[in-house]
């Protein structure tokens, strides 16, 4: 049986992890490679590295970092953040990334998804959507959630899947940072409407929240950052809890 996936997300700035807290068992919690390898060892199913560096040097720094991650981490990982062209993706995949995620650039120019899936295959194209619930529906937000659009999330997700996105990474802005649970309704709606996997993100606070997003939310994978980084939850305990709830997990 295919398992549900648990995916820690690491924010990267200038080649360093931004949220790195007290990990006694690694030398440098700010080092994305050490932290990534630790999560892999603990049973993380995949990793996401989100680059939030804004300088011109970022591309070179990032591709070098991706190579070092690929050398040391033996599970699949996705790289995202400011990716806007076929060339950006080519550099990152050739550096050793397994998948890339695109967000605002794909919304502004949807053909990018067609180009990427044709060139590299859908399996490595993750479409990230930041979504907010307002006036009775879920809408797409851009630029890290700063810019609103009038496009409904379900419509954009369907179009993206048709254009060649291989997975959807859905972050609910209403839930993100609240630790009150994932957005189950929009996650389930996307999962039922699409024939590609949906990764739920935003709101994880307890193990029960993960159980809910896999059962009620029908997510294929769940992503979280701070609860893992601040060690509020350990991956082995989380996976054991979910397994005991009857959810397929890899050990």
């Amino acid at each position: 049986m295919l398992t549900k996936r648990i995916i820690p997300c690491l924010d990267i700035k200038d080649g360093r992890t931004v949220k790195g807290v007290n990990f006694e068992n690694i030398r440098d919690a700010g080092d994305p490679i050490e932290l990534g390898a630790l999560y892999a060892q603990q049973g993380a199913d995949e990793l996401v590295f989100l680059d939030i560096t804004a300088t011109n040097e970022r591309r070179k720094t990032l591709s070098e970092l991706v190579t070092r991650i690929a050398q040391h981490v033996n599970i699949p990982f996705t790289v995202g953040g400011g990716i806007a062209s076929v060339e950006d993706v080519s550099v990152l995949l050739n550096s050793g990334a397994d998948k890339i995620s695109v967000n605002t650039a794909a919304f502004k120019r949807p053909e990018l998804l067609n180009e990427l899936s044709r060139e590299f295959g859908s399996q490595c194209v993750v479409l990230a959507i930041d979504t907010r619930f307002e006036n009775g529906d879920w809408y797409v937000y851009l630029n890290g959630g700063r810019v609103a659009t009038t496009t409904k999330t379900i419509d954009w997700a369907k179009e993206a899947a048709e254009r060649g996105a291989g997975e959807i990474l859905l972050t609910s802005m209403n839930n993100d940072g609240t630790k009150q649970g994932f957005a189950l309704d929009i996650t389930a709606q996307l999962s039922q409407s699409l024939n590609i996997p949906v990764i739920a993100s935003g709101g994880a606070g307890t193990m029960e929240h993960f159980a809910d997003v896999f059962t009620k939310g029908q997510a294929d994978a769940a992503l979280a950052a701070s609860i893992f980084h601040y060690k509020e939850m350990e991956i082995p305990e989380l996976k054991t809890y979910l397994y005991n709830k009857g959810i397929q997990m890899r050990f």
């Binding site: 295919l2 398992t3 399996q123 291989g166 999962s191 699409l194 024939n195 996997p197 890899r250």
Partner: peptide, 15 residues
Amino acid sequence: SPVENMLKIPQIGWN
């Protein structure tokens, strides 16, 4: 997929 959208294709993940 035996039922629409039941089986996600491609299969992505650990089996």
